[in-house]
Amino acid sequence: MSSSRTSVEVDGRQLSLSNLDKNLYPEFTKGEVIDYYARVAPVMLPHLKDRAATRIRWPDGVDGGKFFEKNAPSHTPGWVRTATVPSPGSTRGRETLDYIVVDDLPTLVWCANLAALELHVPQWRIGPRGKVHAPDLVVFDLDPGPPATILDACEVARRLAELLGDEHGLSSYPKTSGKKGLHVYVPIKEPAEAERTSQFAKGVAERLAREHSELVVAKMEKRLRNGKVFVDWSQNNPAKTTVAPYSLRAASSPSVSTPVTWDEVGRCADPAALRFTPAEVLARVDEHGDLLKPLLEDQQPLP
């Protein structure tokens, strides 16, 4: 493995990339990771813009150790946007953290060069002067407990979409988690209080669990999840994050948290049909554009 460094210019910023031939996945190198993120950037960056990014880094690849990075490291270039955000309950006892905000291609490439395979973001944005805004998204994380699979998550996603539409008049949009589950998003107008999104999501999840108890669980206890789909509403807590659209996931081979259509969710009969490689995602973007673009445009009033 070469330890050489390569100097590149990205949108007017000079970056020094290292170890491009190092495998971060078996048979998938850091150079290929950076190339994927650079190519998917036009559709990914709008979903990262103005959001405090938590990076999950695997400096020795997916077979090595990982660590979560919220605070901007000391070697962060001056041109990378950071935002100081309150951090109650920080494991390091800090009252605030200086998050990186991935607003542009150079920052995305810089993160990828640090082996930040996964990028996770909250459901709220940061204003130009650093103000933390109320959430503009509600998210439901559908997590199947074995022997349930993503096919069961698809069934729950369909029922969730019907409930949101029929009862609340809300449009919703799915993506794969990039692992075994699905995420369903609802774009909203900023409510008066951030707590409303958590309360709303919890109420919807609990109703699904009552009406479809054979398939759905909304309580946190892991012992309740066997063979059912856990509808995790807790990611609407302002302190929590969800993997960003188009982010890679760490696994034995590279997979992507991928926007999908409701038609794909409805007709899926094979779990493999909802697992996408970076190359497949880039081909889908060429064909469909950003299937989650409505999250950026379709602001709906929260009931």
Rank of each mutant, 00 (worst) to 15 (best):
D263I: 06
P245H: 08
M220E: 12
L108C: 02
M1F: 13
T149C: 06
T91M: 10
P144H: 10
V10I: 15
E280N: 07
D232P: 03
V243F: 03
S234A: 14
P187F: 02
L142I: 10
K202D: 01
P88K: 14
V132S: 09
S18Q: 14
E280A: 11
A72T: 07
D136T: 15
G65A: 06
S198M: 12
C268L: 08
L15S: 11
L160N: 06
I34W: 07
S198N: 03
P77N: 05
P187R: 11
K131C: 07
F276I: 02
V102N: 01
R55H: 12
A134N: 15
A72P: 15
A205C: 09
T242K: 05
F28S: 03
L117S: 00
V229H: 00
D11R: 14
R249N: 09
T176M: 07
V217Y: 02
L182E: 03
A134D: 14
A134W: 06
R207T: 12
N236H: 10
L105I: 08
G64E: 05
V109T: 03
H183G: 02
P77Q: 03
G31L: 02
E221T: 11
N113Q: 00
L17T: 07
G89A: 08
A251M: 10
E287R: 15
I56A: 00
D98C: 02
A251R: 15
E167K: 11
P106Y: 01
P144S: 09
P88E: 12
I126H: 01
S257K: 09
A153Q: 05
N19S: 12
V80F: 00
V156T: 04
S255I: 05
H168T: 02
